[in-house]
Design a protein around this nucleic acid. Structure first.
Lengths: 205, 205, 205, 205
DNA sequence: TGATAAGCGAGACGGTACGTCCGGTCTTGAG
DNA sequence: CTCAAGACCGGACGTACCGTCTCGCTTATCA
């Protein structure tokens, strides 16, 4: 997250970091998150569980929020290449991946806390939000304007509003209530409703 | 919120509470909330601003979350009588009131924090969620089944899913990004999309 | 201590005080004093032990100090008539009665506390100090000037200084160290020293 | 007062204490003592005046009594080497230094309170009493037995009793009544009386 | 005889002060 | 420059308890 040790040029004087510590800390973080939640998670507890010390953690992540964020949403950058194909399938994939991401136990524990910190210190904004739906947020506006051109989508539809609906419902559905609520039927229903909502008149998807 | 002790019979032994303290505390709470946010709000600071002391606050609200909740969402119970009339207008009113409620500065500051506490200590669940959209949450399923009967709504539409979409987008739109994003056009757009989404085939609203 | 109900004139409208409460409170006070000391004695504890309530106590004594003072040094006004006879016997009697008064367990527990309150709020000064050695404080200056006249005492001796020595040693001897330290021999020794100290030159008592 | 931990060898792991905090706290303590007295002095107030916090104070002194004691009677250990010379001058110096020590405003404010705590929790006994007259308490018995040998002092005189008289009068004179009472004449008078009191018969000092 | 006034027990309130937890930082000594 | 150990600083906490107040009742005196 910080000081990606520019492996090419400088030699990073002094003792190199023990890579196992970073791994152990991230692992300990998700564990503790699921056990006690975001608020009660402390750096000291994480360090202790990872068999290291707080300063070693602070050297790697400046903030509890940064640590939790990386632990829960690793920068896998496995950003599935956005498919420019079928609109319905694209939207479904967006919603599904969002819901899956937010449904993991550690994410359920972390997201409200992260959101709260984000509200108080908007510095994290960029870092955190940028990954929330991976590269698919970039795909959406492109595909929508495409759809408007070829008559799949009403011209009035704005991608940003659509994103609010999709992300908002994904967030709400995972954040409140039991996770069982979210099943394939729920996904189908939402996508169906949205597809009908954005379709031009006299056309039935 | 607590101890309106059967106002008819018993007389509540002991010195009665100074009603002005409760008022002052609630007022101070919203002020401080807007100034420093949920996380940095402390009971001591609230008490001090209200010219009283922490114990007086703790006597009234067991938790910072309870205090903030009551300060931001007072139990006005001015639950506007849900109108059983026009569906579009009903939905718009729901969304609008939700957005307005969540757009107040104090609510913007409070909601993520409350949500985080709620995730960690689900005791508040009932208390807090129950009021989020007032009596309108009760109105929705009734009106939807009505709509299904008279052909306004597709039979597959479930009120719960609809609620996820409406609440979720309202929450997301107010929680992230600047409040200016939410304007009448945004409301119209969302309602339009939803109305089209729930309408039966071959019918254009 | 307060409101000596001027038994002659007014009849004190309203319900009269329950005399047993006052007694019980005083008794409870000395008990608790010996058990836990002045600082840890609370009005609530006293009231509870006396089977009554704090307000009933506060109605009688405005302050813990007043209560303790009256409990430990009752205004017996059994002020033994000061004898104007033998000087040595008079001084011995003064020292002895002082030491005995201050040696009671309750007094040992109370005096330092009272002294401390007295230092902080000199209002009690008059009330408390006035009784410390009963009427004998009045006797001393008279008997000393008498002694100077008849050659028992050096003319330079001032009664106030003598009082400092006698009271001071009595206080110190009882306040610090175990009570066993103070025995007849100690008394004799102090009196002997003082008698020699105040005697005129070339005279051996 | 505590933990000057074997200043020779070990280096005390962990972050060292900020020495300025200790100084500032002691200074604030004497100030507040003179302003409001012992009882109303609060650790929190001291900490605040010293621009630090209660925990920092509690780390250094376990009790208000310990703190006040060190603030008022610093362990200067400037224990003036006891002079084995002139008896009268030695006693005068004892009395004078005691009176001066106890006459400082902060000492006048502190002593009764300390005494009261000491009565309730005799743990402090050793700590506090030990310094009350510095090394001179050790000098007295030695010099007295010397004096008995060389005929300056009656053989019956015990140093402990003498100490009661000297300390007791010093304490009483400073503790009650205005400080102006204690002037050189008072000192002379007391010393004169004591010197005559301990002298052998037929000898005039 | 009824009105007045004060004392009483019960119990909660308002507020001071407390002592502690703990989050994040810093120092030391070694690698 | 990193690591581990460990103490320190200070923000915030939640509570114990003190003295007060309110209540409803009781007990005397006074009109």
């Amino acid at each position: 997250m910080q000081s990606p040790p520019d492996s090419i040029v400088a030699k990073a004087a002094g003792r190199p970091r023990d890579a196992r510590i970073g791994q152990a800390v991230l692992h300990a973080t998700t564990e503790i998150l699921e056990e006690v939640g975001y608020q009660r998670l402390t750096i000291a507890a994480v360090a202790s569980r990872a068999k290291t010390t707080p300063p070693a953690v602070y050297r790697r992540w400046p903030t509890k929020a940064h640590l939790v964020h990386e632990a829960v949403f690793p920068s896998t950058s496995e950003d599935v290449l956005p498919h420019y194909g079928d609109l319905r399938e694209g939207l479904r994939s967006m919603l599904l991946s969002g819901v899956q991401l937010l449904s993991q136990p550690s994410a359920r524990a972390a997201v409200p806390g992260l959101l709260a910190e984000l509200a108080a210190a908007p510095t994290l904004h960029a870092d955190i939000l940028s990954r929330f739906a991976g590269g698919e947020w970039a795909w959406l506006p492109i595909r929508i304007s495409q759809g408007i051109e070829n008559g799949e989508v009403r011209p009035e539809v704005r991608a940003a509003t659509l994103l609010d609906l999709i992300s908002g419902s994904a967030f709400l559905a995972t954040a409140v209530g039991p996770p069982e609520r979210i099943d394939p039927q729920w996904i189908d229903e939402v996508i169906d409703l949205i597809m009908r909502g954005i379709a031009p008149d006299h056309e039935t998807n």
